[in-house]
Design a protein around this nucleic acid. Structure first.
Lengths: 210, 210, 210, 210
DNA sequence: TATGAATGAGGCTTCATTCAT
DNA sequence: GATGAATGAAGCCTCATTCAT
């Protein structure tokens, strides 16, 4: 406690390593990332990395899992703010923006690219990430839609399906708009896409007016 | 002329290399793929690869570009079979299935995963692939929708937008269903997703019955 | 004759190759020089080089031998201009400058560096070059000194020795002055060194005045 | 502490590498020398070489610099033994022999050949070596000549110039005599050349007898 | 726990050289 | 004689990983 940076506990070296690994994996991909680079960025010696993580692979998996956790938590928090009584278009639009913001964040894209890149190499990586990230998000969204349906504000049978379609409609164009996250999306384009997605969603699922 | 190497003509070594490269890149990703492995699979010596392609990178780009070409050609051919007069639901469903089949093919997924994986490493790879693949496909689909709109069978203003939304609705769930292409999609699930996508699309865009 | 550059005979390809080889060997050294680069610079295909020269080594030897020839011829021509009756200091200085000019030429230094570099690799390279270059030069210079001694203008016993010492005195500093030929020698420095060399030579060998 | 690798202490691996590199570079030149060969001769694994030296180039530079240091130190030590009161001819001859011995040593020639060979490739190699080797030597020799001049035993104005000329006279013929260090110099020839050099030097710079 | 040093394996690339035309 | 294509060998360098401290 006296010989390291004041204030820091001794073994958040682990988290320094994880953070550094996140950065390096993100920038270079799993194979090209070198443990050397990670150790250096984390400010530790190479064997220290091996003291905390069995393997390059295990380090990578941890990075992915914790990243998925963090991202899902942010999205779910956003979904929780839906106000069942407010104007539907405005509310869905607002929420869509919040969700997309997470997806559009550097970390969001990085995770997604890493997942695509390495899903074939690491058999159960996809399940790990989806069970920590994708599924909870969909569940949360489906729950909100169910509540809106119950109140008669949406005409939805299968809320899980509708949730997935909502996501597809408002976010399906993001990869193309941002070149898979490698370019900033012009603000206007983003609004246009989200608005159009919400509009189409409501054209399909708004209850017929009597 | 008659005494050439047992197998082939002269310079389709180039295509043997390209095909092998496709396989190896697909299986291992850009960085892990070794020129050695590619050469061996192509049945040529390593330097022969370098006689045909400047670089590992240039070989990779060629693989991606030609793959995008091939895939787009197949999808566009499928779109061309739309019969403007047939039952709309049935027709859109049929076409959606054809399109998805390309996406679901091993090559389709492989290309997509490689694209996600390496888009950050190779600056203009995304543009290369999209301009050869994505854009023509969307244009073709938008064209078909425009024709349907002209005949009063769809109520669509912005056909490009509708085309993108159609794609999102019928294919947006594919990554999740197939775990980014690493698992076969249960036939029933696929049908369900496509049908639901088409149904939602038509709920939004079928002209109001008089 | 009709299909190649007008005027050129067909097989001075050989000399194009030799010249290109000279350049490339000079710039890169024997080992780093690539036959590819030589062929390209000569404007011929790689196997053509092998049609004219057995080997990289044999090509190198030819380059060295012909270079030594050319340089020696130029130096000997310079020595032939010594006027036995003119002012000794002026005449020796003038000749020294001419000799040095050859040594200082790009080709001169290049040959010398190549010789040093590869003398250990190619057993008899040194003899080849010296017998074509060094020996004739020294003989010529010794001859001139002998004539001057005969006329009583120099007090020299062993003219070969004196010739060698003359060379050492006027040119011995050149390597240091030009950083082995990699930098231009400031004009003043060169004059100073040559003058000093001639002066010392004459202090040692001018006949004692009666 | 007692159980370390059989042979050596811990980190004179560095000097084992340096020594091996000296040998291999000397025998093969910079480009042909392989790090593999150096590592093997040093008895270490290849990456160990890279743990101690950034680069093949940096290893080479270190070899050259340390070699120049060692050689210069030996020569300067020899110069320090000049006895200002002894017989001048004998003393200069003796010192010349000692100096030449360093130049004639395998390491001396090797360094010189490497320097010539690679001076064009490595921009400031010449300065590195000369500032560590050549300059101190000349300074030391000039100092001795100055002392002799002060005592009236030599008639020298510019001691730096005289030092350079002394070197040129006694050693200028060495490259030719030893074929740039690739052949032993017959003892008689060496003596003859040195004696002649000293004699000429003194004919030029011995004070006129009154 | 943290580290400096060491290593076996392997990748990309280039080269001198040769067929077959 | 001249060429396009092909190849076996080899080099530099980097990596993931492990001792020994």
């Amino acid at each position: 406690m006296a010989t390291t940076q004041p204030g820091r506990g001794r073994l958040d070296k682990r988290s320094a390593i994880l953070q550094a690994a996140g950065t390096v994996f993100t920038e270079q991909g799993f194979t090209s990332a070198s443990i050397d680079a990670i150790a250096q960025l984390a400010g530790v010696a190479k064997p220290t990395v091996y003291n905390h993580f069995q393997d390059k692979e295990s380090l990578f998996r941890t990075v992915m899992r914790e990243g998925a956790d963090r991202t899902a938590a942010r999205i779910i928090a956003a979904l929780d703010t839906i106000d069942d009584d407010a104007d539907l278009t405005a509310e869905l639009t607002r929420v869509a923006h919040q969700v997309i913001e997470c997806q559009l964040s550097d970390e969001g894209w990085a995770l997604q690219r890493l997942l695509y890149a390495e899903v074939a190499r690491f058999a159960d990586l996809y399940d790990d990430v989806v069970s920590q990230g994708g599924v909870p998000i969909l569940n949360a969204l489906a729950g909100r839609l169910a509540r809106l349906a119950n109140r008669g504000r949406l005409d939805v049978d299968d809320v899980m399906l509708a949730a997935a379609q909502f996501m597809s409609l408002v976010a399906g164009n993001l990869p193309a708009l941002s070149a898979l996250g490698t370019r900033p999306v012009p603000a206007g384009e983003l609004d246009r896409a989200v608005n159009a997605g919400v509009r189409t969603f409501l054209r399909a699922f708004a209850p017929a007016r009597t």
